[in-house]
Design a binder for these strands. Structure first.
Lengths: 245, 245
DNA sequence: CTCGAAGGACGGAAGACCAAACCTTTTCTC
DNA sequence: GAGAAAAGGTTTGGTCTTCCGTCCTTCGAG
């Protein structure tokens, strides 16, 4: 080497590189996955889960591990199981009350919003590029449910999640779908205890409407604008109620 | 129940909910983390890693587990270790040639681009909102290195990564930083074997310039536009050379 | 020459996960 | 009504990963 290369010092961020490596166990991840799917209503109350022997095969884990997770979810009241032929594991109805959100969750709320911003903007662009007619038909249905639910926050949030997850599915990108469900799960924990008067939900719906219109026109730029505005709404609400940083 | 509720059927996507749960071991995750940090140049050749006893503490894993990872990285030629006082583990210089990308990686290249789109758009918006004067100074430096490297793809790619990771750091959101490094690692694998003539790099730099200008003006909308255009460039190149789906 | 800091090696304990059975309960079918 | 079938519930044993602690080896600084 004739000459020292310009920048050989560590340019940045060994903090991120050497940050703790958190290895979630299969048990934990299963509880998380099924739990959020239930909390988000992706698995509606009353739904029957696949039989244990098939579910563990689909999840790629041992049956004993799956049973650990199901036992945990059953003890927390999210599912219940009945024995015998025709039995099975079912999503509880009604669901148990949400547990209070953890302090560390609350401390990192802005990071959660940042993550959501990324996922939602990406989804907005790709959904606008790729949504098919069938996708749009489904989304229109969900939007109708959304308009019908401005008076009932629980139902509204339910439909809201279905809309956003539906958009993610329209991108045909499994990773974005799971990223969306994950981030919506985190957002639900944050949003749960915040009052949402009907007029807020109505204005939120106006944004939904413009978002869907942009997707229908296959106009990614407009979709991004509508989505960004939509997200800013909830972020401002949170910023007003939660401690900064 | 007096009346069946409107939509109680599973609305969508049990496929995603019941998708296989991959449980990465601590060993694998450590190899991944350190390996990509090295491949991306976040840990430059010649850099000394922290001592094993400290590094395992920072990573939150046992020393034996860390040593497994270091042994793997040493056998693949990415690092080497010297014993005795003043010794340590160092990033190799030069680095071993990149191994050919796996077929499953190649098959999912579009998903990787989708993920990148989300991360980069989110970073573009938040960096435009939050970048400080110091952040911009660093980014300007990196941009200068970028302009000086249009003739040398390896150096260019190196600086390119530093720019994008630098933007992520400007968001002050650790999750976005790690998401960025992860996705850049995946992109590097895809990009490695594709010819990049100087004029392509130059036009790419024009987009970088507009991106930085938008960030400097704290104009998220422009930043998103510049970033989107920038990403489309590489995506079109890949689409031309890689099999669809 | 000695001390200390670094990598290197071993061995046991604990826990997560898996695999393959077998048991119990319930219901459907003949 | 008897039995088959389908579901959850239980037990056992084994493998693999990870952790923890201890000790060894090397070699530069003082």
């Amino acid at each position: 080497m004739s000459e020292p290369v310009s920048s050989r010092e560590p340019v940045s961020s060994p903090e991120t590189v050497f940050a703790p490596v958190r290895s979630q166990t299969a048990f934990e991840e299963t509880v998380e996955r099924l739990g959020t799917a239930i909390k988000l209503g992706l698995l509606a109350p009353g739904t029957q889960l696949p039989a244990e022997r098939e579910l563990c095969r689909r999840l790629g884990i041992a049956r004993s591990t799956l049973r650990q997770a199901l036992t945990a979810l059953s003890q927390s009241g999210h599912v219940f199981a009945t024995r015998g032929r025709g039995g099975g594991t079912f999503v509880s109805d009604p669901q148990p009350p949400a547990d209070p959100l953890s302090p560390e969750m609350l401390a990192r709320w802005r990071e959660t919003c940042d993550q959501r911003l990324a996922v939602e903007l990406g989804v907005a662009v790709l959904a606008a590029e790729r949504a098919s007619a069938e996708d749009l038909a489904v989304l229109d249905e969900v939007y109708a449910a959304l308009e019908a639910a401005v008076e009932d926050f629980a139902a509204y949030r339910q439909a809201d999640i279905r809309l956003h997850v539906g958009l993610a599915e329209a991108t045909r990108s499994p990773r974005l779908v799971s990223a969306m469900t994950e981030v919506q799960g985190a957002m639900t924990d944050l949003i749960a205890y915040i009052a949402h008067p009907p007029q807020v939900l109505a204005s939120s719906n106006a944004q939904h409407k413009r978002l869907l219109a942009a997707v229908r026109k296959h106009d990614p730029a407009s979709a991004v604008r509508a989505m960004a505005e939509h997200l800013q709404g909830t972020e401002h609400v949170l910023a007003g109620l939660l401690p900064e940083r």
